[in-house]
Design a protein around this nucleic acid. Sequence first.
DNA 1: CGAAGTTACTTTATGCTGTAAGGAGTTGCA
DNA 2: TGCAACTCCTTACAGCATAAAGTAACTTCG
Lengths: 259, 259
Amino acid sequence: MVVYAGQGDARRSMGLLWRGARTEDVRPGPKPALTVDIIVDAAITVADSAGMAGLSMRTVGEQLGRTGMALYTYVPSKNELVDLMYDKVLIELPTDYDLDAGWRTAATAWAWDHWAFYLKHPWVLQVSQARPVLGPNEYVLLETLLRILFATGLPPKMVKRLVGTLTGFVRGAVQVVAESRQAPAATGMSDDEWWYTRSALLMEVAGDFAEQFPLVTLLDSEQAYQMEDETVPYLEQEAIETFTAGLAVILDGIEARTT
Amino acid sequence: MVVYAGQGDARRSMGLLWRGARTEDVRPGPKPALTVDIIVDAAITVADSAGMAGLSMRTVGEQLGRTGMALYTYVPSKNELVDLMYDKVLIELPTDYDLDAGWRTAATAWAWDHWAFYLKHPWVLQVSQARPVLGPNEYVLLETLLRILFATGLPPKMVKRLVGTLTGFVRGAVQVVAESRQAPAATGMSDDEWWYTRSALLMEVAGDFAEQFPLVTLLDSEQAYQMEDETVPYLEQEAIETFTAGLAVILDGIEARTT
DNA sequence: CGAAGTTACTTTATGCTGTAAGGAGTTGCA
DNA sequence: TGCAACTCCTTACAGCATAAAGTAACTTCG
């Protein structure tokens, strides 16, 4: 299920995202042993290892030796927590791309950095993009990409559209790999194993496959399961090639507009 | 949460997907009042109106005047049901693209048909793409796109990679709109309203926004909330423009490789 | 015809989920 | 010394997928 940005009190939610120096005013009651940051870090740890499916208020609480309910003292809901996780984890992405070698080199590096980032934190792909969290780091990221794209010399309107195209492309491409890595844990079967089993069954169940789908058959016979690097699953090799080629095609398209 | 392909008995699952003529052998016990097809149709109806979040065994069962458990007589698990829904709904996509006007015209039509399809059935975007369902209609779809792309004259290897690029791009681009349409129902606030509220809060909370993010500010001031068509939300207008421009860029990139 | 076996569907139960409600214990200030 | 505010806990509820067992309908076998 897709997680939406918090609908609670917008002011509180924005305050949490852009929270500055800790308000150190003395207050009654026991000293809080946790902080929002500690909770967000714990939640990211949980999501990194157990995926979005394994992220629950209880699991995060237990990670910190608390109950799930304890978190509600610091964070209004799970949605807000996810927003905070999302914005916080974005810090890991680089922001200083050298434009001396040209915008294309920078854009390529940018794309691969995002690829690696999403594979490290696959759950990020499941945070809704429709309603940007509007956190500080998301804007840092956007500013970074804009700097690269403005270097093309294209008009702002075009740049704006390319932002969506590029981020959408990267997310779409990496999603295939991210999900294929999460899936085995859920099914107890490696991705390649799964493919092999299903393919065999397919031929058994759909007898006239080759006649019904000649082009698919042609493509499969072209390079059927030639493992170039046995340490990387076949599906991932393909995804990497698709990503590389797709990126080149898009950048070619952009380049054609700059001249 | 992303829904994975069923891990249960692979043979049964493939049998369901490629199920041919009904096995009309007489069997003991009460006559089944439902069929797999009826259940899948009901599930699609539920998902179309209530989204993937509203799709539960109970809701589908109730749609048919049964309990949720009744479905388990026909379908081994919810995962398998989703697989069946996915493959069945794909029938709606066109398959006969005229190539007389060139592959580019066909590819553009293909992309927009997919755009419309995903907006009609947004839940499809939440079915995992890592492990193709391997149902018959998915192959019909693939064959259709291959027919268009082979018309470019590019080598099979390249065609294979473009498939991923194009489908990934369409999914990524439409996802923004799909989620923005689902979200208001969840938050009781229109998307544009939401944006307006958050933007105002942003300026309040991050005082030096303009200095910190000059390029973002430049882009926003360029065409800030000029509603060209008031019936279509601003975010969607932008998404459509992004989709159009991105598609053109990709097709340009492909075209450059054909000459 | 009656018993046995098979099947459709229901009810009940288990262990998850987010989070509302209320209570216990701690602390600062009047 | 009270009181209010605060953290954190326990309990509770509705909803989720689905396992297990029960009921009723139907076919087949003796």
